[in-house]
Amino acid sequence: MTVMEFESILKIAVPVAAYILFAPLLGGLLAGIDRKITARMQGRFGPPVLQPFYDVLKLLEKEAITVNSSQDFFVGCSLLFMIVTGCLFFAGLSLLLFIFALTTASMFLVAAAYSSNSPYAQIGAERELLQMMAYEPMVLIAAISLYIVKDMTFNIGDMVSSGVPAVILLPGVFLGFLYILTIKFRKSPFDLSMSHHAHQELVKGLTTEFSGKTLAMLEVAHWYENVFLLGFVFLFFANGTLAMAVVGVVVCLLAYFLEVFIDNVNARMKWQFALNSAWIVALTFGAANMLIVYYRLFGGGV
C-alpha cells in the first residue's frame, strides 16, 4: 500500500521537478532559436542561440527600479502561477484546472501593468485583456473537445495514454488552437500588448514600466508558458505509443517554426481584427468540429 502511495507521489513529483528545472532551459533555447531563425529570414546573421539567457542574466545584474511596491509582487505571482500551471499540466492533472491557473497567471500580469499608472503600460494591459478575450473561447473549446473524444475525462494523464490521437477526430479544433497560439506566443500580427521586436508604437506596452529583475521574471515566465503551450499541442497527438509521441514532438517543433514564420511575414493588426478573427475561427473550426464529434458520439446512439 505504502509502496503504491509512494509510487503515485513519484509519478507526479518527477515530471513536476523536471518541468521546473528544464522548462526554462528549453524555453530559453527555443527563444534563441526563434531569434536566429527570424534573423536568417530577414537576411541577417542574428545573435547567438544563447542570447535570451544572456539577456536575462544581464537584467538580473541591473539596478532595481520599481514604480511602486505592488508591481514586483504581481509579476512574482504571475511567474509563480505560470510555473504552477505547467506543473498541473506535466503532472497530468485536470485540463480545466490548468486553464484556470493559466488565466490567473495572465491576470496577475495585467494587474502588474495596471498598477504602474503609466499610459503605455495601461494601454498594453487593456490590449492584453482583449487578447485574453480573443483566445479564451478557443482554449475552452479545445478542452471540451478533448474531453469528448478522450472518453469523458479532463485528466491529462489519461488523455495522453489512451485511444486514438485526438487530432484525427479534431482537425478543426487543432487548427483553431494553432491560430490562437499566435496570440499566446505574442507573435505578429497579434503582438498587440507587448512585442519582442522594436515596434515603438506603444513603447513596450505591458512591460514598459518593468526593468531589471522584474523584467527578467517576466521573460522566464514566458519561457515556462511557451513550453506548456507546446505541451498542449502535443496533447492532440499523444495516445501512449512511442510513434505518436515522436510525431507529437515533431509537430510541436513545426508549430513553433510556423509561428516564427507568421511573425515575420505579418505586420501588426488592430485589436478588432484579433478579436473578430479569433472568434470566427473558434466558431467555424472549433465549435463546428466539436458539434460534429458530439453528434457522432451521442446522435448515433439515440
Binding site: 541577417r44 545573435p47 522594436a198 515603438q200 513596450k204
Partner: peptide, 9 residues
C-alpha cells in the same frame, strides 16, 4: 543584433 544589441524604445 549579432552582438546582442537590441534597439529598445
Amino acid at each position: 543584433e549579432r552582438f546582442g544589441i537590441i534597439n529598445t524604445g
